[in-house]
Design a protein around this nucleic acid. Structure first.
Lengths: 252, 252
DNA sequence: ATTTTACATATAGTATTACTTTTGCTAGCC
DNA sequence: GGCTAGCAAAAGTAATACTATATGTAAAAT
Protein backbone atom coordinates (compact mmCIF):
# COMPACT_ATOMS: atom_id res chain seq x y z
CA UNK A 1 0.00 0.00 0.00
CA UNK A 2 2.70 2.49 0.90
CA UNK A 3 4.81 1.98 -2.20
CA UNK A 4 6.73 5.06 -3.36
CA UNK A 5 4.65 7.20 -5.61
CA UNK A 6 1.27 6.64 -4.05
CA UNK A 7 1.42 10.04 -2.44
CA UNK A 8 2.23 11.59 -5.74
CA UNK A 9 -0.64 9.88 -7.42
CA UNK A 10 -3.02 10.73 -4.64
CA UNK A 11 -2.17 14.40 -4.87
CA UNK A 12 -2.21 14.72 -8.59
CA UNK A 13 -5.39 12.73 -8.98
CA UNK A 14 -3.82 10.03 -11.08
CA UNK A 15 -5.35 6.84 -9.74
CA UNK A 16 -4.20 4.17 -12.12
CA UNK A 17 -5.78 4.95 -15.46
CA UNK A 18 -9.04 6.58 -16.45
CA UNK A 19 -8.83 5.13 -19.93
CA UNK A 20 -6.41 3.41 -22.27
CA UNK A 21 -4.85 6.70 -23.36
CA UNK A 22 -3.84 7.74 -19.88
CA UNK A 23 -2.53 4.26 -19.19
CA UNK A 24 -0.19 4.30 -22.17
CA UNK A 25 0.78 7.92 -21.57
CA UNK A 26 1.86 7.32 -18.00
CA UNK A 27 3.58 4.03 -18.80
CA UNK A 28 5.71 5.59 -21.53
CA UNK A 29 6.11 8.87 -19.67
CA UNK A 30 7.33 7.10 -16.58
CA UNK A 31 9.51 4.86 -18.71
CA UNK A 32 11.19 7.90 -20.17
CA UNK A 33 11.57 9.71 -16.86
CA UNK A 34 13.09 6.63 -15.28
CA UNK A 35 15.54 6.13 -18.12
CA UNK A 36 14.11 2.78 -19.16
CA UNK A 37 13.59 4.48 -22.50
CA UNK A 38 16.96 6.18 -22.80
CA UNK A 39 17.26 9.77 -23.90
CA UNK A 40 18.16 9.99 -27.57
CA UNK A 41 17.04 6.44 -28.25
CA UNK A 42 14.19 5.41 -30.51
CA UNK A 43 11.05 3.98 -28.94
CA UNK A 44 9.84 0.60 -30.18
CA UNK A 45 7.78 1.07 -33.32
CA UNK A 46 4.02 1.28 -33.40
CA UNK A 47 3.39 -2.40 -33.99
CA UNK A 48 5.59 -3.47 -31.12
CA UNK A 49 4.11 -0.99 -28.66
CA UNK A 50 0.56 -1.92 -29.71
CA UNK A 51 1.49 -5.43 -28.72
CA UNK A 52 3.25 -4.43 -25.50
CA UNK A 53 0.36 -2.37 -24.18
CA UNK A 54 -2.45 -4.28 -25.83
CA UNK A 55 -4.02 -1.22 -27.44
CA UNK A 56 -4.92 -0.23 -30.96
CA UNK A 57 -2.80 2.04 -33.08
CA UNK A 58 -5.35 4.82 -32.57
CA UNK A 59 -4.82 4.82 -28.81
CA UNK A 60 -1.07 4.42 -29.06
CA UNK A 61 -0.64 7.29 -31.49
CA UNK A 62 -2.85 9.66 -29.52
CA UNK A 63 -0.83 8.83 -26.41
CA UNK A 64 2.43 9.54 -28.22
CA UNK A 65 0.96 12.82 -29.51
CA UNK A 66 0.36 13.84 -25.92
CA UNK A 67 3.94 13.02 -24.97
CA UNK A 68 5.13 14.93 -28.02
CA UNK A 69 3.11 17.95 -26.89
CA UNK A 70 4.91 17.81 -23.57
CA UNK A 71 8.27 17.74 -25.30
CA UNK A 72 9.26 14.21 -24.30
CA UNK A 73 9.42 12.67 -27.76
CA UNK A 74 9.50 13.61 -31.41
CA UNK A 75 8.20 11.42 -34.23
CA UNK A 76 9.70 11.37 -37.69
CA UNK A 77 8.86 9.14 -40.60
CA UNK A 78 11.28 6.36 -41.39
CA UNK A 79 13.36 7.00 -38.25
CA UNK A 80 10.81 6.46 -35.51
CA UNK A 81 9.87 8.21 -32.31
CA UNK A 82 12.91 9.60 -30.53
CA UNK A 83 13.17 10.43 -26.83
CA UNK A 84 14.22 14.07 -26.64
CA UNK A 85 16.86 15.50 -24.35
CA UNK A 86 15.71 16.77 -21.00
CA UNK A 87 16.16 20.36 -22.10
CA UNK A 88 13.20 19.90 -24.43
CA UNK A 89 10.91 18.52 -21.74
CA UNK A 90 8.16 20.74 -20.50
CA UNK A 91 9.29 20.81 -16.87
CA UNK A 92 6.43 23.03 -15.76
CA UNK A 93 3.93 20.38 -16.78
CA UNK A 94 2.34 18.65 -13.85
CA UNK A 95 2.44 15.16 -15.34
CA UNK A 96 6.04 15.47 -16.47
CA UNK A 97 7.05 16.48 -12.96
CA UNK A 98 4.96 13.63 -11.60
CA UNK A 99 6.78 11.06 -13.71
CA UNK A 100 10.15 12.45 -12.71
CA UNK A 101 9.13 12.32 -9.10
CA UNK A 102 7.87 8.78 -9.36
CA UNK A 103 11.04 7.72 -11.15
CA UNK A 104 13.15 9.17 -8.35
CA UNK A 105 14.87 12.44 -9.27
CA UNK A 106 18.64 12.65 -8.84
CA UNK A 107 20.41 15.12 -6.58
CA UNK A 108 21.30 17.56 -9.36
CA UNK A 109 17.71 17.80 -10.48
CA UNK A 110 16.49 18.41 -6.95
CA UNK A 111 19.09 21.12 -6.46
CA UNK A 112 17.92 22.84 -9.63
CA UNK A 113 14.35 22.49 -8.54
CA UNK A 114 14.96 24.06 -5.14
CA UNK A 115 16.89 26.87 -6.77
CA UNK A 116 13.99 27.82 -9.00
CA UNK A 117 11.28 27.20 -6.46
CA UNK A 118 12.79 29.65 -4.01
CA UNK A 119 12.80 32.44 -6.57
CA UNK A 120 9.31 31.74 -7.83
CA UNK A 121 7.52 31.16 -4.56
CA UNK A 122 9.13 34.16 -2.95
CA UNK A 123 7.62 36.34 -5.63
CA UNK A 124 4.33 34.50 -5.30
CA UNK A 125 4.20 35.27 -1.59
CA UNK A 126 5.08 38.90 -2.16
CA UNK A 127 2.41 39.44 -4.78
CA UNK A 128 -0.21 37.38 -2.98
CA UNK A 129 0.11 39.65 0.04
CA UNK A 130 -0.76 42.69 -2.01
CA UNK A 131 -3.47 41.19 -4.23
CA UNK A 132 -5.31 38.50 -2.28
CA UNK A 133 -9.09 38.61 -1.96
CA UNK A 134 -11.00 38.19 1.28
CA UNK A 135 -12.17 34.80 0.09
CA UNK A 136 -8.56 33.71 -0.46
CA UNK A 137 -7.63 34.81 3.05
CA UNK A 138 -10.40 32.57 4.37
CA UNK A 139 -9.21 29.66 2.27
CA UNK A 140 -5.66 30.09 3.51
CA UNK A 141 -6.89 30.00 7.08
CA UNK A 142 -8.89 26.87 6.35
CA UNK A 143 -5.93 24.97 4.88
CA UNK A 144 -3.68 26.27 7.63
CA UNK A 145 -5.98 24.60 10.15
CA UNK A 146 -6.21 21.46 8.05
CA UNK A 147 -2.47 21.30 7.90
CA UNK A 148 -2.29 21.18 11.68
CA UNK A 149 -5.18 18.77 11.96
CA UNK A 150 -3.65 16.31 9.50
CA UNK A 151 -0.10 16.53 10.82
CA UNK A 152 0.03 12.83 11.61
CA UNK A 153 -0.96 11.55 8.16
CA UNK A 154 1.44 12.16 5.32
CA UNK A 155 -1.06 12.29 2.47
CA UNK A 156 -3.77 14.52 3.92
CA UNK A 157 -1.03 16.65 5.43
CA UNK A 158 0.72 17.08 2.09
CA UNK A 159 -2.59 17.82 0.43
CA UNK A 160 -3.39 20.57 2.91
CA UNK A 161 0.05 22.12 2.59
CA UNK A 162 -0.17 21.96 -1.17
CA UNK A 163 -3.59 23.59 -1.20
CA UNK A 164 -2.26 26.37 0.98
CA UNK A 165 0.53 27.07 -1.51
CA UNK A 166 -1.85 26.73 -4.43
CA UNK A 167 -4.20 29.36 -3.01
CA UNK A 168 -1.17 31.61 -2.78
CA UNK A 169 -0.50 31.06 -6.50
CA UNK A 170 -4.09 32.02 -7.22
CA UNK A 171 -3.86 35.06 -4.99
CA UNK A 172 -0.81 36.36 -6.86
CA UNK A 173 -3.23 37.17 -9.70
CA UNK A 174 -0.46 36.35 -12.12
CA UNK A 175 -1.37 33.66 -14.67
CA UNK A 176 2.24 32.54 -14.98
CA UNK A 177 2.61 32.06 -11.26
CA UNK A 178 -0.71 30.24 -11.24
CA UNK A 179 0.76 27.93 -13.84
CA UNK A 180 3.55 27.00 -11.44
CA UNK A 181 1.29 24.99 -9.17
CA UNK A 182 2.88 21.84 -10.56
CA UNK A 183 6.21 23.00 -9.20
CA UNK A 184 4.66 23.73 -5.84
CA UNK A 185 3.10 20.30 -5.72
CA UNK A 186 6.41 18.69 -6.56
CA UNK A 187 8.09 20.53 -3.69
CA UNK A 188 5.49 19.74 -1.08
CA UNK A 189 5.31 16.10 -2.08
CA UNK A 190 9.07 15.66 -2.31
CA UNK A 191 9.65 17.10 1.15
CA UNK A 192 6.92 14.90 2.57
CA UNK A 193 8.21 11.76 0.85
CA UNK A 194 11.70 12.27 2.20
CA UNK A 195 10.50 12.81 5.72
CA UNK A 196 8.14 9.87 5.63
CA UNK A 197 10.97 7.69 4.41
CA UNK A 198 13.00 8.95 7.37
CA UNK A 199 10.31 7.78 9.76
CA UNK A 200 8.78 11.13 10.61
CA UNK A 201 5.31 10.80 12.11
CA UNK A 202 4.47 14.41 12.94
CA UNK A 203 4.84 16.57 9.86
CA UNK A 204 3.72 20.04 10.80
CA UNK A 205 5.62 21.30 13.82
CA UNK A 206 8.93 22.59 12.42
CA UNK A 207 7.24 24.94 9.99
CA UNK A 208 4.01 25.76 11.80
CA UNK A 209 5.09 29.16 13.07
CA UNK A 210 6.29 30.16 9.61
CA UNK A 211 3.03 29.12 7.97
CA UNK A 212 1.13 31.13 10.53
CA UNK A 213 3.33 34.16 9.85
CA UNK A 214 2.84 33.68 6.14
CA UNK A 215 -0.93 33.53 6.42
CA UNK A 216 -0.96 36.58 8.67
CA UNK A 217 1.36 38.50 6.38
CA UNK A 218 -0.79 37.77 3.34
CA UNK A 219 -3.98 38.58 5.22
CA UNK A 220 -2.67 41.93 6.40
CA UNK A 221 -1.04 42.82 3.09
CA UNK A 222 2.46 42.77 4.56
CA UNK A 223 4.47 41.70 1.51
CA UNK A 224 7.84 41.76 3.18
CA UNK A 225 6.72 39.77 6.19
CA UNK A 226 5.01 37.26 3.94
CA UNK A 227 8.15 36.86 1.87
CA UNK A 228 10.27 36.38 4.96
CA UNK A 229 7.97 33.68 6.28
CA UNK A 230 7.98 31.97 2.89
CA UNK A 231 11.76 32.14 2.85
CA UNK A 232 11.90 30.37 6.20
CA UNK A 233 9.57 27.65 4.92
CA UNK A 234 11.57 27.16 1.74
CA UNK A 235 14.84 27.01 3.66
CA UNK A 236 13.45 24.27 5.85
CA UNK A 237 12.07 22.36 2.87
CA UNK A 238 15.41 22.65 1.13
CA UNK A 239 17.27 20.87 3.90
CA UNK A 240 14.79 18.02 3.68
CA UNK A 241 14.63 17.81 -0.10
CA UNK A 242 18.39 17.92 -0.53
CA UNK A 243 19.18 15.56 2.34
CA UNK A 244 20.97 12.43 1.09
CA UNK A 245 18.39 9.82 0.22
CA UNK A 246 18.36 6.20 1.21
CA UNK A 247 20.94 4.62 -1.06
CA UNK A 248 18.63 2.67 -3.32
CA UNK A 249 20.28 4.28 -6.28
CA UNK A 250 17.12 4.39 -8.35
CA UNK A 251 15.47 1.75 -10.46
CA UNK A 252 16.37 3.07 -13.93
CA UNK B 1 4.32 40.05 -46.27
CA UNK B 2 4.76 41.94 -43.01
CA UNK B 3 1.50 40.85 -41.43
CA UNK B 4 1.53 40.65 -37.66
CA UNK B 5 2.84 37.35 -36.43
CA UNK B 6 5.34 36.69 -39.15
CA UNK B 7 8.15 37.51 -36.76
CA UNK B 8 6.71 35.14 -34.23
CA UNK B 9 6.46 32.39 -36.76
CA UNK B 10 9.92 33.03 -38.09
CA UNK B 11 11.42 32.83 -34.63
CA UNK B 12 9.56 29.82 -33.43
CA UNK B 13 10.10 27.91 -36.63
CA UNK B 14 6.41 27.64 -37.45
CA UNK B 15 6.28 28.26 -41.17
CA UNK B 16 2.72 27.46 -42.11
CA UNK B 17 2.24 23.78 -41.47
CA UNK B 18 4.56 20.80 -41.68
CA UNK B 19 1.65 18.40 -41.81
CA UNK B 20 -2.10 18.25 -41.30
CA UNK B 21 -1.72 17.81 -37.55
CA UNK B 22 0.21 21.00 -37.04
CA UNK B 23 -2.21 22.87 -39.28
CA UNK B 24 -5.22 21.88 -37.21
CA UNK B 25 -3.35 22.38 -33.94
CA UNK B 26 -2.37 25.93 -34.73
CA UNK B 27 -5.76 26.82 -36.21
CA UNK B 28 -7.62 25.68 -33.12
CA UNK B 29 -4.90 26.88 -30.75
CA UNK B 30 -4.95 30.33 -32.27
CA UNK B 31 -8.73 30.27 -32.33
CA UNK B 32 -8.77 29.64 -28.61
CA UNK B 33 -6.09 32.22 -27.81
CA UNK B 34 -7.91 34.84 -29.83
CA UNK B 35 -11.23 34.11 -28.16
CA UNK B 36 -12.92 32.96 -31.35
CA UNK B 37 -13.47 29.72 -29.44
CA UNK B 38 -14.64 31.24 -26.18
CA UNK B 39 -13.32 29.98 -22.86
CA UNK B 40 -15.77 27.60 -21.27
CA UNK B 41 -17.55 26.93 -24.54
CA UNK B 42 -17.74 23.61 -26.35
CA UNK B 43 -15.83 23.19 -29.58
CA UNK B 44 -17.78 22.01 -32.63
CA UNK B 45 -18.04 18.23 -32.59
CA UNK B 46 -15.72 15.92 -34.47
CA UNK B 47 -17.82 15.65 -37.60
CA UNK B 48 -18.15 19.38 -37.98
CA UNK B 49 -14.47 20.09 -37.43
CA UNK B 50 -13.48 17.32 -39.84
CA UNK B 51 -15.54 19.17 -42.40
CA UNK B 52 -14.20 22.62 -41.46
CA UNK B 53 -10.54 21.63 -41.73
CA UNK B 54 -10.92 18.95 -44.36
CA UNK B 55 -9.08 16.29 -42.37
CA UNK B 56 -9.92 12.82 -41.15
CA UNK B 57 -11.07 12.05 -37.65
CA UNK B 58 -7.66 10.52 -36.93
CA UNK B 59 -5.87 13.78 -37.61
CA UNK B 60 -8.45 15.88 -35.82
CA UNK B 61 -8.39 13.78 -32.67
CA UNK B 62 -4.60 13.67 -32.51
CA UNK B 63 -4.56 17.44 -32.86
CA UNK B 64 -7.07 17.83 -30.05
CA UNK B 65 -5.00 15.45 -27.91
CA UNK B 66 -2.06 17.79 -28.36
CA UNK B 67 -4.13 20.76 -27.28
CA UNK B 68 -5.41 18.76 -24.32
CA UNK B 69 -1.83 18.01 -23.32
CA UNK B 70 -1.12 21.73 -23.29
CA UNK B 71 -4.12 22.35 -21.06
CA UNK B 72 -6.22 24.27 -23.58
CA UNK B 73 -9.13 21.87 -23.85
CA UNK B 74 -10.65 18.89 -22.10
CA UNK B 75 -12.78 16.22 -23.79
CA UNK B 76 -15.62 14.46 -22.06
CA UNK B 77 -18.06 11.96 -23.46
CA UNK B 78 -21.55 13.21 -24.19
CA UNK B 79 -20.66 16.84 -23.51
CA UNK B 80 -17.92 17.51 -26.05
CA UNK B 81 -14.54 19.21 -25.99
CA UNK B 82 -14.54 22.21 -23.68
CA UNK B 83 -12.15 25.15 -23.82
CA UNK B 84 -10.54 25.37 -20.40
CA UNK B 85 -10.00 28.53 -18.37
CA UNK B 86 -6.71 30.29 -18.84
CA UNK B 87 -5.49 29.14 -15.47
CA UNK B 88 -5.29 25.62 -16.86
CA UNK B 89 -3.25 26.61 -19.91
CA UNK B 90 0.37 25.63 -19.95
CA UNK B 91 1.77 29.14 -20.20
CA UNK B 92 5.38 27.98 -20.31
CA UNK B 93 4.72 26.11 -23.52
CA UNK B 94 6.27 27.77 -26.53
CA UNK B 95 3.36 27.19 -28.87
CA UNK B 96 0.78 28.37 -26.36
CA UNK B 97 2.73 31.59 -25.89
CA UNK B 98 3.04 31.88 -29.66
CA UNK B 99 -0.72 31.67 -30.15
CA UNK B 100 -1.34 34.23 -27.45
CA UNK B 101 1.20 36.51 -29.04
CA UNK B 102 -0.29 36.11 -32.48
CA UNK B 103 -3.77 36.73 -31.11
CA UNK B 104 -2.59 39.97 -29.52
CA UNK B 105 -2.19 39.76 -25.73
CA UNK B 106 -4.06 42.28 -23.58
CA UNK B 107 -2.39 44.73 -21.23
CA UNK B 108 -3.03 42.68 -18.08
CA UNK B 109 -1.39 39.63 -19.58
CA UNK B 110 1.63 41.62 -20.67
CA UNK B 111 1.98 43.13 -17.20
CA UNK B 112 1.93 39.65 -15.68
CA UNK B 113 4.42 38.47 -18.19
CA UNK B 114 6.87 41.26 -17.48
CA UNK B 115 6.48 40.67 -13.77
CA UNK B 116 7.53 37.06 -14.05
CA UNK B 117 10.16 37.57 -16.68
CA UNK B 118 12.06 40.00 -14.54
CA UNK B 119 12.28 37.56 -11.67
CA UNK B 120 13.23 34.62 -13.82
CA UNK B 121 15.76 36.24 -16.11
CA UNK B 122 17.48 38.00 -13.25
CA UNK B 123 18.16 34.65 -11.67
CA UNK B 124 19.20 33.26 -15.03
CA UNK B 125 21.79 36.00 -15.45
CA UNK B 126 23.10 35.51 -11.92
CA UNK B 127 23.52 31.77 -12.30
CA UNK B 128 24.86 31.96 -15.84
CA UNK B 129 27.67 34.20 -14.63
CA UNK B 130 28.83 31.58 -12.17
CA UNK B 131 28.34 28.46 -14.28
CA UNK B 132 28.93 29.33 -17.92
CA UNK B 133 31.37 27.34 -20.01
CA UNK B 134 34.04 28.85 -22.24
CA UNK B 135 32.06 27.74 -25.26
CA UNK B 136 29.00 29.59 -23.99
CA UNK B 137 31.04 32.75 -23.51
CA UNK B 138 32.11 32.50 -27.15
CA UNK B 139 28.51 31.98 -28.28
CA UNK B 140 27.36 34.99 -26.29
CA UNK B 141 30.01 37.11 -27.95
CA UNK B 142 28.95 35.85 -31.36
CA UNK B 143 25.27 36.73 -30.85
CA UNK B 144 26.24 40.03 -29.28
CA UNK B 145 28.00 40.92 -32.52
CA UNK B 146 25.13 39.60 -34.62
CA UNK B 147 22.74 41.72 -32.63
CA UNK B 148 24.66 44.83 -33.61
CA UNK B 149 25.10 43.73 -37.19
CA UNK B 150 21.38 43.06 -37.66
CA UNK B 151 20.16 46.18 -35.86
CA UNK B 152 18.34 47.45 -38.94
CA UNK B 153 16.27 44.33 -39.62
CA UNK B 154 13.65 43.41 -37.08
CA UNK B 155 13.60 39.66 -37.60
CA UNK B 156 17.32 38.84 -37.73
CA UNK B 157 17.81 41.34 -34.91
CA UNK B 158 15.18 39.67 -32.73
CA UNK B 159 16.64 36.28 -33.56
CA UNK B 160 20.11 37.35 -32.44
CA UNK B 161 18.81 38.89 -29.25
CA UNK B 162 16.75 35.81 -28.52
CA UNK B 163 19.71 33.50 -29.11
CA UNK B 164 21.77 35.59 -26.72
CA UNK B 165 19.16 35.16 -23.99
CA UNK B 166 18.76 31.50 -24.82
CA UNK B 167 22.46 30.84 -24.39
CA UNK B 168 22.12 32.45 -21.00
CA UNK B 169 19.35 30.01 -20.12
CA UNK B 170 21.62 27.16 -21.15
CA UNK B 171 24.51 28.59 -19.18
CA UNK B 172 22.46 28.71 -16.01
CA UNK B 173 22.78 24.90 -15.97
CA UNK B 174 19.32 24.76 -14.46
CA UNK B 175 16.87 22.62 -16.45
CA UNK B 176 13.91 24.67 -15.26
CA UNK B 177 15.46 27.91 -16.40
CA UNK B 178 16.35 26.25 -19.68
CA UNK B 179 12.69 25.41 -20.03
CA UNK B 180 11.83 29.10 -19.85
CA UNK B 181 13.24 29.88 -23.27
CA UNK B 182 9.69 30.19 -24.54
CA UNK B 183 9.16 33.06 -22.13
CA UNK B 184 12.35 34.68 -23.26
CA UNK B 185 11.33 34.39 -26.88
CA UNK B 186 7.96 35.93 -26.11
CA UNK B 187 9.64 38.90 -24.48
CA UNK B 188 12.15 39.56 -27.19
CA UNK B 189 9.57 39.22 -29.93
CA UNK B 190 6.98 41.32 -28.14
CA UNK B 191 9.40 44.19 -27.58
CA UNK B 192 10.49 44.04 -31.18
CA UNK B 193 6.94 43.92 -32.53
CA UNK B 194 5.93 46.97 -30.54
CA UNK B 195 8.89 48.96 -31.68
CA UNK B 196 8.53 47.95 -35.30
CA UNK B 197 4.89 48.99 -35.17
CA UNK B 198 6.06 52.35 -33.79
CA UNK B 199 8.29 52.84 -36.82
CA UNK B 200 11.65 52.10 -35.21
CA UNK B 201 14.33 51.27 -37.76
CA UNK B 202 17.39 50.87 -35.57
CA UNK B 203 16.75 48.31 -32.86
CA UNK B 204 19.98 47.86 -30.96
CA UNK B 205 21.27 51.19 -29.68
CA UNK B 206 19.31 51.83 -26.47
CA UNK B 207 20.32 48.53 -24.92
CA UNK B 208 23.72 47.95 -26.52
CA UNK B 209 25.80 49.08 -23.56
CA UNK B 210 23.77 46.89 -21.21
CA UNK B 211 24.16 43.83 -23.41
CA UNK B 212 27.87 44.41 -23.50
CA UNK B 213 27.99 44.71 -19.72
CA UNK B 214 25.94 41.55 -19.43
CA UNK B 215 28.23 39.57 -21.70
CA UNK B 216 31.28 40.86 -19.86
CA UNK B 217 29.77 40.13 -16.48
CA UNK B 218 28.94 36.57 -17.46
CA UNK B 219 32.34 36.04 -19.06
CA UNK B 220 34.19 37.22 -15.97
CA UNK B 221 31.92 35.43 -13.53
CA UNK B 222 30.63 38.67 -12.01
CA UNK B 223 27.15 37.60 -10.99
CA UNK B 224 26.11 40.90 -9.50
CA UNK B 225 27.27 42.94 -12.47
CA UNK B 226 25.54 40.55 -14.83
CA UNK B 227 22.30 40.80 -12.90
CA UNK B 228 22.49 44.58 -12.90
CA UNK B 229 22.99 44.69 -16.65
CA UNK B 230 20.10 42.28 -17.13
CA UNK B 231 17.94 44.45 -14.90
CA UNK B 232 18.67 47.46 -17.08
CA UNK B 233 17.74 45.49 -20.20
CA UNK B 234 14.51 44.23 -18.68
CA UNK B 235 13.56 47.70 -17.48
CA UNK B 236 13.98 49.04 -20.98
CA UNK B 237 12.02 46.15 -22.49
CA UNK B 238 9.26 46.71 -19.98
CA UNK B 239 8.65 50.28 -21.08
CA UNK B 240 8.32 49.07 -24.65
CA UNK B 241 6.19 46.01 -23.94
CA UNK B 242 3.80 47.89 -21.67
CA UNK B 243 3.51 50.98 -23.85
CA UNK B 244 -0.07 51.52 -25.02
CA UNK B 245 -0.60 49.70 -28.29
CA UNK B 246 -2.20 51.03 -31.42
CA UNK B 247 -5.90 51.01 -30.66
CA UNK B 248 -6.97 48.23 -32.99
CA UNK B 249 -8.63 46.54 -30.08
CA UNK B 250 -7.81 43.05 -31.31
CA UNK B 251 -9.59 40.86 -33.80
CA UNK B 252 -11.18 38.35 -31.41
C1' DA C 1 38.07 5.39 -55.18
C1' DT C 2 34.67 8.78 -54.69
C1' DT C 3 30.54 10.94 -55.51
C1' DT C 4 26.07 10.92 -57.25
C1' DT C 5 21.80 8.96 -58.32
C1' DA C 6 17.99 6.04 -57.86
C1' DC C 7 15.42 2.66 -55.79
C1' DA C 8 13.74 -0.39 -52.07
C1' DT C 9 12.09 -0.28 -47.58
C1' DA C 10 10.82 0.89 -42.98
C1' DT C 11 8.33 4.03 -40.49
C1' DA C 12 5.13 7.48 -39.30
C1' DG C 13 1.11 10.07 -41.48
C1' DT C 14 -3.63 9.87 -43.08
C1' DA C 15 -8.20 8.05 -44.27
C1' DT C 16 -12.25 5.27 -43.55
C1' DT C 17 -15.51 2.54 -41.25
C1' DA C 18 -17.55 0.39 -37.56
C1' DC C 19 -18.24 -0.55 -33.02
C1' DT C 20 -18.04 0.48 -27.67
C1' DT C 21 -18.24 3.19 -23.59
C1' DT C 22 -19.49 7.00 -21.03
C1' DT C 23 -22.71 10.25 -19.34
C1' DG C 24 -26.22 13.96 -19.55
C1' DC C 25 -30.96 14.13 -20.22
C1' DT C 26 -35.61 12.68 -20.18
C1' DA C 27 -39.48 10.06 -19.31
C1' DG C 28 -41.59 6.96 -16.57
C1' DC C 29 -42.14 4.54 -12.27
C1' DC C 30 -42.30 4.29 -7.18
C1' DG D 1 -41.15 14.82 -5.44
C1' DG D 2 -37.49 11.92 -5.93
C1' DC D 3 -35.56 7.79 -7.79
C1' DT D 4 -34.62 4.75 -11.81
C1' DA D 5 -34.20 3.09 -16.38
C1' DG D 6 -33.14 3.80 -20.80
C1' DC D 7 -32.28 6.73 -24.80
C1' DA D 8 -28.97 9.21 -27.37
C1' DA D 9 -24.97 12.20 -28.27
C1' DA D 10 -20.48 12.52 -27.96
C1' DA D 11 -15.96 10.81 -27.32
C1' DG D 12 -13.25 6.37 -26.94
C1' DT D 13 -11.45 2.35 -29.32
C1' DA D 14 -10.45 -0.96 -33.01
C1' DA D 15 -9.05 -2.61 -37.48
C1' DT D 16 -7.51 -2.03 -42.03
C1' DA D 17 -5.64 0.02 -45.88
C1' DC D 18 -3.27 3.31 -48.17
C1' DT D 19 0.21 7.53 -48.63
C1' DA D 20 4.22 10.33 -47.76
C1' DT D 21 8.80 10.69 -46.18
C1' DA D 22 13.39 9.87 -45.27
C1' DT D 23 17.11 6.51 -44.60
C1' DG D 24 20.20 3.20 -46.21
C1' DT D 25 22.08 0.69 -49.91
C1' DA D 26 23.55 -0.44 -54.17
C1' DA D 27 24.26 0.71 -58.77
C1' DA D 28 25.97 4.08 -61.93
C1' DA D 29 28.63 7.91 -63.27
C1' DT D 30 32.64 10.64 -62.50
Amino acid sequence: MSEPGSLVRALSGRQTARNYHSYVISEVGLGIASGRFAIGSILPNDAEMMDTFGVSRTVLREALKTLEAKGLVEARAKVGTRVLSRSRWNLFDRSVLGWIQEAGPDAAFLASFVELRETVELQTATLAASRRTAEQVRMLQYWLNQREAMAAMSEPYALAEFEFHRILCEASQNPFLRATSGLVEFGVVQATLVRRAAGVTEFSSEKSAHYKDLANGVASGASVAAAQAMAAILTQDRTWILSPQRGDGGSG
